[in-house]
Design a protein around this nucleic acid. Structure first.
Lengths: 226, 226
DNA sequence: TCAAAAGTGTTTGTACTACACCCATGC
DNA sequence: GCATGGGTGTAGTACAAACACTTTTGA
């Protein structure tokens, strides 16, 4: 019997939208391509899926070989099928979005691209292929997900202050949220626990350090914003 | 230059979870396969993606050739990559969920399967491949989506009573919802408009007939349930 | 006039909003 | 002691939950 992969099948790529948060700025990792198509243009990191490979394995391979970073939060985003999305031929793209604390990794450039760098989501350059669509979808997903799931903790250090968490939310959602109401809401939800430690060395009152409550089972957090 | 599809690529299938609602029962369309693998077993309707075909075109082809039904509400669900999900070889499945009013269509059996029929979501048979996982994901999506998006209207007739809409919600979510609070919430959201008509021929008070408010732009509906 | 379902309103409690003030620290 | 940001409390409001009565219709 003829094997399926001997028929003509579209190629299958995995593309990643890697979000990082640092110094009050939400960024995305982009590669500057050193080959056609879109040579010297910016694209999302990606790779073709290998025959025996799972999606998450391909994600790990991309992160490791192109960006030099290890395992992190990954979630499937969407699959893109526009026939002309790649000028070289029919390529389906299964996309994932990832969250990373840039402080924990040094980005290493891979061989496909001569440069990988962080780009403020508010100042994105033109992107090759249909990667603008993918990016938009990812940002939309991140913004809706953060309202009911503690994704923020993937972007911060293991311990963080309430102000840092608050600023993260304001930055990602691009709105302002009342500091005191935010604090109450977060604490009531029990998503975070007070470590009892304080951040020291600041020139004013030492804020408490919190960490994510890993024991929490059920989701009782929902943030309503206008 | 060698074309992408000349390399070894996994096969790519489109599988559909078609939900129908009829007489207070939420059902899914299943095919009884007449060939191996899973001969005489139940599976979701699906097909291999053709080289130049878009996902939604493949969905339309499946609906037409296997089920004999036309265009309906479709939304991409998830892409499944388990290497052993198809015993014949590596097949990636991009899945969609669909909503249909079964009263509007007669299901016609196709050539791949000798039977297509509706199955109560509460009494599902064993499914071939990984279709149980796909079904579960689809039901989960439907249940969360109905809380903030008027998916229900795809499942009802063009005009419907408040009680019919109420029962649909209770059926899909598998909970009971206060009739009066539900009514107020739905009417306040302006998702539906009173047609001024009444359903006649019942043995008691004639209920108003409503229809979906197609002019509605922004989503101001959110149902909170325990 | 009775049964059955449709339609309406009120009371209560909870949760979010919008605020102002005090506290700890480094300089 | 003063500037800076961290921490706490509270009154007002809006929405959701829980609930009972009236109305319309066919038989």
């Amino acid at each position: 019997m003829k094997q399926f992969h001997e028929y003509r099948n579209p190629a299958l790529a995995i593309d990643l939208v890697v979000f990082g948060y640092h110094e009050n700025m939400l960024s995305v990792l982009l590669l500057n391509r050193n080959e056609e198509p879109f040579k010297n243009g910016w694209t999302l990191p990606g790779a073709f899926l290998q025959m025996e490979e799972r999606f998450l394995e391909a994600c790990g391979r991309i992160l490791k070989t192109k960006l030099g970073i290890g395992r992190l939060f990954l979630e499937q985003l969407y699959s893109f099928d526009e026939p002309d999305r790649d000028p070289r031929g029919r390529v389906i793209s299964v996309t994932y979005f990832a969250l990373v604390n840039p402080g924990k990794f040094e980005i290493a450039a891979g061989k496909m691209a001569n440069d990988a760098s962080w780009h403020d989501v508010k100042k994105m350059p033109e992107l090759g292929f249909d990667h603008k669509d993918i990016f938009r979808k990812a940002l939309e997903r991140l913004r809706s997900k953060i309202l009911y799931f503690p994704v923020g903790f993937e972007l911060l250090d293991d311990m963080f202050t309430m102000t840092e968490l608050h600023e993260l939310y304001e930055c990602i959602l691009d709105i302002s949220i009342d500091r005191r109401n935010f604090r109450r809401k977060i604490l009531d939800s029990e998503y975070i626990v007070d470590t009892g430690l304080k951040r020291e060395g600041l020139r004013n009152r030492h804020p408490s350090l919190y960490k994510f409550n890993k024991k929490l089972k059920q989701n009782n957090f929902h943030l309503n914003v206008s």
